[in-house]
Each structure stands twice: as structure tokens, then as C-alpha cells.
């Protein structure tokens, strides 16, 4: 068999239809995970009583287990809990009415939150201690110093890692097909098996992922340059 170059183009266009879904699976958990990440990072940094241990275990366990299992466990576990609660409180709803993508959002957000908390935590720790002391010295409260002085710098320091998180989620989205969501990988496998052209379809999918990754890297590069000039001298 020869490589059918023109079919790569055909497959490319067809698979591209799945782009919005893939982007949704990438962006929504990125945003939610970011919120979880900041929360967890602060809980662990301030060693909030009792829950910082839970937070520590959450981070360690999710970072120590494969994403595919997070998807399966959420996909099977959430409906079970939902149905129990529904029966108990008489919501009159069944878990089968939950759209599949919600499970992906939950699984990916929990996963991303664990990773991002570590990124943000190390970003916060990298901020110059002297600046925190300076913030206190002009009378800021702990909260003010954190939100106004530390976090903005921590996020800037974390930017490259946060970009890697985006790329990680983008690539992770290829696992959403395991619960039958037709994102890029899912679409590719459908196109592949209906036309019996596996190599061509996966090449097309690879090109899309690769292109998205390159764009993400470019944007981060630009963003970093921009922010660094804004913060001239302010950021180590």
C-alpha cells in the first residue's frame, strides 16, 4: 500500500470538524483547574489545618495516576453518586441525562488542578521574600500582599509551565474518545476505520495537534515578552 497523500487532506478537513470539541475539552478544564490550583496552592502554603493534608494527598494521588483512569473513575463513579443522591432527595433526575462532556470536564479539571497547584506553588515560592516584607512594611495585610504583590508575579513566573499545562490538556483530550466523545482523536479513528486508511487519518490528526501546539508555544512566547517588558525590573 502506498501513502495516499490526497486522502490526508480529505481526512484533515473532516477531522478538523472536531476542533471545537477538542478546544472545549482543553480550555474549560484549564480555567476550572486554574481555580482549583490556586485554592490548593494557598491551602498548602498556609498549611490550613487538617485540609492541607487532604490537599496534599489529592495532589500526590492525581499526579501519581494515569489520566485515563481519572476519566473512567469519574465516568463510572459520578453517576453512581448522582443517582443515589437523586433518589434520596427526590430530584427526579437520572444520571443518564448528564452529557458525556461533563464527565470529561470534571475529570480533566481535577487532574489539571492537581498539576497547576504545584506550578503555582513553586511560582509563589520563587517570588522574592523581600517584596513580601516590603508589602508588610507599608501596612498591607497578608491577603493584600498575596493578591496584589505575590500572585501576579508568581503567575508570570509560572507562565511557561502553565503553557505546558495547556499543551498537556490538549494532548490529554485525545483520551476523551475512551468514553465515546468524538474529539480529534475520536474523529480520526472513525475516519480511519470507515475508509480503512489508518496511517493517513492519524497523520492528519497529528498535524492538527502539532499545529495547535506550535501556535500555543508561539502565543506564550509573545505573551511572555509582553509581560516581561511591562514588568521591567519588577520581575526577577
Amino acid at each position: 500500500m502506498q501513502l495516499d497523500i490526497s486522502f490526508i487532506m480529505t481526512a484533515f478537513l473532516e477531522i478538523l470538524q472536531a476542533l471545537p470539541l477538542t478546544l472545549a475539552i482543553t480550555f474549560v478544564p484549564l480555567v476550572i483547574g486554574f481555580g482549583i490550583g490556586i485554592g490548593i496552592a494557598l491551602i498548602r502554603l498556609y498549611e490550613v489545618r487538617y485540609i492541607h493534608r487532604v490537599a496534599g494527598f489529592y495532589v500526590s494521588f492525581l499526579r501519581g495516576t494515569p489520566l485515563i483512569l481519572h476519566i473512567y473513575i469519574v465516568y463510572l463513579g459520578i453517576p453512581m453518586i448522582f443517582d443515589r443522591l437523586s433518589a434520596h432527595f427526590g430530584w427526579g433526575m437520572n444520571s443518564s441525562s448528564i452529557p458525556l462532556i461533563i464527565f470529561i470536564f470534571i475529570a480533566f479539571s481535577l487532574n489539571a488542578g492537581a498539576y497547576m497547584s504545584e506550578i503555582i506553588r513553586s511560582g509563589i515560592l520563587a517570588v522574592n521574600k523581600g517584596e513580601i516584607e516590603a508589602a508588610y512594611s507599608i501596612g498591607m495585610t497578608t491577603r493584600q500582599a498575596m493578591w496584589r504583590i505575590v500572585l501576579p508575579q508568581a503567575l508570570l513566573i509560572s507562565l511557561p509551565n502553565l503553557c505546558n499545562m495547556f499543551i498537556g490538556l490538549l494532548h490529554g483530550s485525545s483520551l476523551a474518545f475512551s468514553i465515546s466523545l468524538l474529539e480529534i482523536n475520536g474523529k480520526a479513528s472513525i475516519v480511519a476505520s470507515t475508509n480503512w486508511k489508518f496511517v493517513e487519518s492519524y497523520i492528519a490528526a497529528a498535524i492538527i495537534y502539532w499545529g495547535l501546539t506550535l501556535i500555543a508555544e508561539q502565543i506564550t512566547g509573545l505573551l511572555e515578552k509582553r509581560l516581561r517588558t511591562f514588568a521591567k525590573g519588577g520581575v526577577a
Binding site: 500500500m1 501513502l3 499543551i167 490529554g172 485525545s174 482523536n185 480520526a188 479513528s189 480511519a192 497529528a206
Partner: peptide, 22 residues
């Protein structure tokens, strides 16, 4: 390196699995 960094491992796996024999 850019390709490896730019594509999901699952896609790489399928590419090798279907592509290498060809």
C-alpha cells in the same frame, strides 16, 4: 523533538502501530 512535543502519545502509538509495518 517538536513533533514529539507537539502530538499526543496515543496518536504517536497509532502512527507507529499502523505506519511502521507499511
Amino acid at each position: 523533538v517538536s513533533f514529539i512535543r507537539g502530538t499526543p502519545i496515543l496518536i504517536q502509538l497509532f502512527l507507529i502501530y499502523y505506519g511502521l509495518p507499511e
